[in-house]
Simulated assay, not measured.
Amino acid sequence: MLKGINQWCYPEGTPLEKVFEYSRDAGFDAVELNINPEDSIGLTMNTTIEEAKRIVEIASSYQLQLRSISTGLLWENSLVDPSAKVREQGRGIVEKQIELAATMGIDTILVVPGIVSEDISYTDCYERSQEELRKVIPLAKKHDVCIGIENVWNKFLLSPLEMARYIDELESENVGAYFDVGNVLQFGYPEQWIRILGDRIKKVHVKDFRTAIGNIKGFVPLLAGDVNWKKVYVALVEIGYKDTLTAELSPYAIDPCSLAVDTARHLEIIMEQD
């Protein structure tokens, strides 16, 4: 497996070359980029093909692979919003992810399918998200890019059996799971999810979580929480996963390169658990 780190692990505004430099020097194999708001560092909705290709060249000069594209824009431009206009905007974000991935030689994008709320029922979230995803699957198929559905704290897809069914119902090899280990721990066991989702898993996010805290402040650096990393790693090996373990952690308050160094070492320890 490859060691990866998300751009969000560094302070907002960190130049891409510094992201790549810190990541290379820490020993990472890959960096996950995000489509960020306009005027942010890196990829945005306005990034051109030429700019995207240049980013690939810069990453390659640091001996780093670009394996996936994430985004936080779908939280405010949800695929399940009651407004058809907002859903269309969300769909446009996914389409931009696909197009950038195709340009940059990236095989997977991360998609948050929707958020259940007082105003958006579970049924609406399920049906609307599948409806919108079916509209972008042909583009994903055309460019041979996988849409990785992530399990996040969105009150949706709360069991591995349901997530597996949700993916299977879309009936496309271009839809899979972007599995987040730490996000599961509040209501399940990641090693069980891994075995049930099996080869549906296209990419993996890693972070740790302290269940005794039980809220957003419970997310902690790798090895500092309650994830049973030995069981997680063994389960990943059992399903034949050989791709990237991408760390998605909050930046350190000072000395951002230290997080990269610490996390790369923690990933090495995790990969020694078989």
Score class of each variant (00 low, 15 high):
131 E>H: 10
120 I>H: 02
148 G>C: 05
200 R>N: 11
141 K>Q: 15
183 N>R: 00
125 C>F: 05
165 R>W: 14
208 D>V: 00
198 G>L: 10
106 I>D: 04
152 V>T: 14
150 E>R: 06
97 Q>W: 06
117 S>N: 13
140 A>I: 07
113 P>Y: 08
160 P>G: 05
181 V>Q: 00
208 D>E: 04
130 Q>S: 03
167 I>T: 02
99 E>H: 14
94 V>S: 02
183 N>A: 06
98 I>N: 10
170 L>Q: 05
201 I>L: 07
208 D>F: 02
194 I>L: 03
140 A>V: 08
191 E>C: 03
180 D>I: 00
201 I>N: 07
202 K>A: 07
184 V>E: 04
149 I>L: 15
167 I>V: 12
168 D>P: 06
163 M>H: 00
147 I>H: 05
191 E>D: 13
115 I>V: 15
185 L>A: 13
196 I>P: 02
120 I>N: 01
168 D>V: 09
106 I>H: 08
107 D>E: 12
155 K>G: 12
151 N>A: 03
136 V>G: 08
177 A>H: 01
110 L>G: 07
202 K>V: 03
203 K>E: 10
99 E>P: 10
168 D>K: 11
117 S>W: 12
193 W>M: 04
102 A>L: 09
94 V>G: 06
202 K>T: 04
99 E>V: 14
202 K>C: 09
131 E>A: 12
167 I>S: 00
98 I>P: 13
155 K>T: 13
149 I>C: 06
175 V>N: 04
208 D>N: 02
206 V>E: 00
146 C>V: 15
146 C>H: 15
166 Y>A: 04
116 V>A: 04
152 V>R: 13
185 L>H: 12
124 D>W: 00
165 R>V: 11
99 E>R: 13
134 R>P: 03
153 W>D: 14
104 M>Y: 07
207 K>R: 11
138 P>R: 08
103 T>S: 14
118 E>V: 15
146 C>Q: 15
193 W>G: 08
179 F>V: 01
131 E>P: 02
98 I>L: 13
172 S>E: 11
123 T>K: 10
196 I>C: 05
111 V>Q: 06
117 S>G: 12
135 K>V: 03
167 I>N: 02
159 S>Q: 01
124 D>E: 13
